[in-house]
Amino acid sequence: MSPLDFTLVTFVVSVVAGFVGSLLGLGGGMIVTPVLTLALGVDIRYAIGASIVSVIATSSGAAAAYVRQHMTNMRVAMFLEIGTTLGAITGAWLAGRIDPQWLYLIFGLVLTASAIAMLRKRHAAGGPVPPDPMADRLRMHGEFFDESLQRTVAYRVSGSRPALALMYVAGVLSGLLGIGSGALKVPAMDLSMRLPLKVSTATSNFMIGVTAAASAGVYFLRGDIVPFIAAPVAAGVLVGATVGSRVMARLDNRVLRIVFVIVLLIVSVQMILKGVRG
């Protein structure tokens, strides 16, 4: 493959990954890394370095819109980012030191879990919100304007400590695998912190960019963000995700979702096999 062909193929693949990722709510990183490594033979560390940059691009683009809609809880985001950024640095540091085989293996397992999680319907926890003195002290409770109800809805925040611990884990996975790990952040905020679903989505998206920036700094200085790979990936995923979010809302067609889940499971098995066999 000539350098020009490589750039063009990688760009097209990344546009598709960004598009599909935004439809599934998975993020482009989960899709672009398997394609780069399994189909194009790119070193997994460079694929992850390119993917983490694309995560920043899509998250920052989407966050710009969410902030204007006042959905993001900035206090919750800032508090949890202490966990996610520390985790991201840990993950990025680890990625440079463990055998790449492990990266394939862990990536495959996380992709399997994310694919299966796509089948579950997202739900808010029921019942009264348990009191959380830490959330009180840090004044995390907030309100947002609900479009469908046409009024401002106030909410109380709970479980800030377990959420902070979960965010550290989400940060480690993000830094290790070059993914946004929204699949872990959103349920932590829905179920542990009891944030309204729309607020969780916006706040998670806001945090993903900052988390990715922490590990991208490590990758950049280590020389794992190679311009030749990262350029078509970042530009492609950004274009794909932007088109994806404009063209239609998130995919709710059950049959299509199941088809995607099966495809993702096949890809994860291949990643795991590559990790085991080398």
């Binding site: 493959m1 350098p3 490589f6 750039t7 780069l36 194009l40 033979g41 790119v42 070193d43 460079y46 950049f220 020389g223 794992d224 963000i225 190679v226 311009p227 030749f228 790979i229």
Partner: peptide
């Protein structure tokens, strides 16, 4: 120099 035939990268990050 950009990627070689296998997509392996010959150039280092600047």
């Amino acid at each position: 120099e950009p990627a070689n035939a296998n997509g392996t990268i010959l150039t280092a990050a600047p």
